[in-house]
Structures are given as C-alpha cells and as structure tokens.
Nucleic acid binder design. Structure first.
Lengths: 220, 220
DNA sequence: GTCTATATGTCGATAGAC
DNA sequence: GTCTATCGACATATAGAC
C-alpha cells in the first residue's frame, strides 16, 4: 500500500517493479500486484490491458531507475581508473540481484523481444560508456593495452552480474565483493610497470573489500 | 517422450531436468513434465510426492552432469595456465545459460535452502579447484601475485555466469565470448614481465574468440 | 507401479454497473 | 476511473480401482 496521493497507475507500476525484482515476471501474479498496490481489479485492467503491458512499464521504470547513476558516474570528470574503481566498488544489493539483469533469466522475458529490448538497451549503454573510459585509461598507461577495451567492458559487466549469481548461491555477499575487488586489482596489476603507482607486489595483507554490497540499494 | 527401456522415474528426472533449464523451477508445471516424459499422473506422484521432490532430484542430476568435466579438467596434469585457458574457452551454450547458475535467479529456489544446497555445493567445488590452479600459476610466475587467488577464482566464475546474462540480453553469444577472452588476456597481461611469453603488446589485430559458445553443450 | 477421476485453488482476463 | 461479479483454463495435488 502506498500513499494516497499517488495515482493508481503510478502505484501499479511501482508494485509491479518491486515484485518483478523480488519474484521475476512469470512468478508475479496480477493478484499480488493488486494487493500490494491497493488498486482494484477494474482499475488495473483499465490502465494496463494485460499483465505484459504492466510488466513493460515496470521494466522500463527499473531501467530508468538504474541507468542514470551509472551514466553520470562513467561520463563524469574524474580520472578514468578512479571512475572504474568507483563503478566496481559502488554498493549493490548482492543477495537481491540486479533488477535489470535478473530479467534475462526469466524465460517469458527472454523470449519476448519487446520485453527484452529495454534490458538489452540498458546493458548496451553501460557497455558503451565502460568501453570509452577503459580506452582512456589504457591511453594514459593506467592499464594494459594488450586487451581490447570492448572485451574488458564486457568482462566488468559480467563480473557484476555473475557476482550476484555466486552471492545468491552462497547466501553470502562475499563472492560478489571478491569478484569485483579481484577485477579491479587485476586491471591495476596489468598496467605497464612505469605507470604502476599502487601497492608493491605482495601476496599478503590484502585489505578486505569492505563489503560494498551491504550498504545501499543501487544496482546495475 | 523417451525410449521405452527407460524407467519412469528416470524419465521424470530427465524431463524435469530439461524443463528446469529451459523454463526454471517455478515456471515448470507437473503437466509439462508428464507430457514430456510420457509418464502418467499416478506414476508421477508415486515416485515423487511433490513437485519440489522431483525438482530436487533434477537439480542434483544437473549438478552431477556438469561438475565432473570441470573437476577433471582443473585437477588434470596440464600446465596451470593452460588449464585456466581451457576452462575459460570451453564451449558453453551462451544463449541458453547455465543449468545450475540459472537456479539462483528463481525465487522459489533461492529461498529454499534444500533446493539451493546442491547449487551452492557445485559452485564451492569449482571455486576450490580454481583457487588451487590459480595459486599454482601465480607461484610459477605466470600471473600476477598482486591479486589473491581466491578473489581471482570468484572473478572467473562470475565472468562465466555474468557472460550468460549479457549474451541472453543481447541475444548474441559475443558478450559471453568477449568477457571470457578478456579475462584470460587480462590474467596473462598481469604476469610479471620476465615470464610473459605471449604476444607483444599491441592494441590491434586481436584474434576473435572463435565463438566457443556456439559449439557444444557443456556448461558450468 | 500405473491408471482414471476428482478436488480445490489460482491465473489472467472480461463484463457491465456506477 | 473504479467497483463487483464471473469465466475458462491450468496448477498441484488426492482418491481409489487395477
């Protein structure tokens, strides 16, 4: 139930949004949406002729919720490697998974091009920005020029998405935090020796990732 | 429908196994299992008192199907970095996803410790073997000693699992192939200069990953 | 072990009054 | 725009004969 001032349509999208994150698309029923939103059966089908229409609006909403923060960060004025580090260590809900990425594992979404489109667009946008920043970092000698920035960009997105999978399997955010921390350290370790300004090579006393995943509720 | 010689119980597990991969647990109905297995209603509930019991058997089966190949590879006699390379470039069904990892995205599985256990065990086993091999590689100077092998092991598993997410979103195996290829190249690029015996540093003419994901049907 | 019949609930949607 | 009533189909079993 949400505040009375919120319009029905808005409440429906918000409820569907949350439920798709918590349970996925196929597993979310109109009844649950009605109950959580406090909107009646008639109103619901007035605003959205089918469950799929509501899901499309909710999916779009979830993408719009997550993308701007990432885009702003990656296109900001900071040093490229600092932006990569910030992207990889930003707090994320490791045990809840990604509002957007999770949708790819729902067969009803993955086989429906219309529903998959916003998800594909979101990942394509992140990939583009990551590629640009990684290329800049390589040009400054802050990471290896032996690996294609496009590939590295896919690697970083995959690390985050796969980190969720490992964390949920283990019911522990650590695999997520470790995967992201490992990616960042490996990027830095690949930098040409002249430019390396991080810690001396050592296998002991590696600081913990300070469980970035525990804190906030950002995502992709 | 499967061969007549197959026992009912076996046919049920096989059908459930396939359907859980294709559609997930929540979205698979007893009716579909009956139809695909050709086993009648009575027989089904004779062998498995509930859908969950059948799912547990199918999940166990999927883990048993995938683990041995990985374990054999990683504990084999080859050079550590060769084993890592083989693990990362092994053909996998990028657009179908992982039979085991996919289960973490099904809310009904993720919130049921009994169902999640075989999944958690499978990932823990892979993580253990990867850690051992990565540590060996680091000791031989074939990759950076600046990154904890445990973290790298999580990174590699996450790369594969996240690669599936990106490939399905894009409906194209390339993000999967690129993420894995990028991880391997980055590992190699991180090796101390003395031991690097791969290609000279260059940003052009990087060979394609030869779409490993298209070929076979191995998975995790 | 396998079969057919039956049961109870929910899904996703439609109808039509207000 | 919102309400209540209703619908046919399917989900997840259970009952009980063979």
């Amino acid at each position: 139930m949400y505040s009375q001032g919120m319009e029905s349509r808005e409440r429906l999208v918000t409820a569907m949004s949350e439920l798709m994150w918590e349970r996925g698309y196929a597993a979310t029923s109109p009844r649950e949406v009605r109950e959580r939103s406090g909107v009646g059966q008639g109103s619901m089908y007035h605003h959205f002729p089918s469950k799929r229409d509501l899901a499309l609006a909710a999916l779009q909403r979830n993408c719009d919720d997550l993308l701007p923060a990432t885009t702003d960060l990656l296109t900001g004025p900071d040093d490229p490697m600092d932006k990569i580090a910030a992207y990889l260590t930003r707090p994320r809900p490791a045990l809840k998974g990604c509002k957007v990425g999770r949708m790819t594992q729902d067969p009803l979404v993955a086989t429906d091009p219309g529903l998959l489109a916003p998800v594909a667009d979101a990942f394509a946008t992140v990939h583009h920005h990551l590629t640009v920043v990684l290329r800049e970092a390589a040009e400054r000698g802050e990471l290896s020029t032996a690996v294609d920035p496009e590939r590295l960009a896919y690697l970083l997105s995959a690390t985050i998405q796969g980190g969720y999978v490992l964390a949920i399997a283990a019911q522990d955010p650590r695999p997520y935090d470790d995967a992201c921390a490992g990616a960042l350290e490996l990027l830095r370790a690949s930098a040409p020796p002249a430019q390396r300004h991080d810690e001396p090579i050592s296998t002991t006393n590696i600081p913990a990732a300070a469980s970035a995943s525990a804190a906030s509720e950002r995502n992709d």
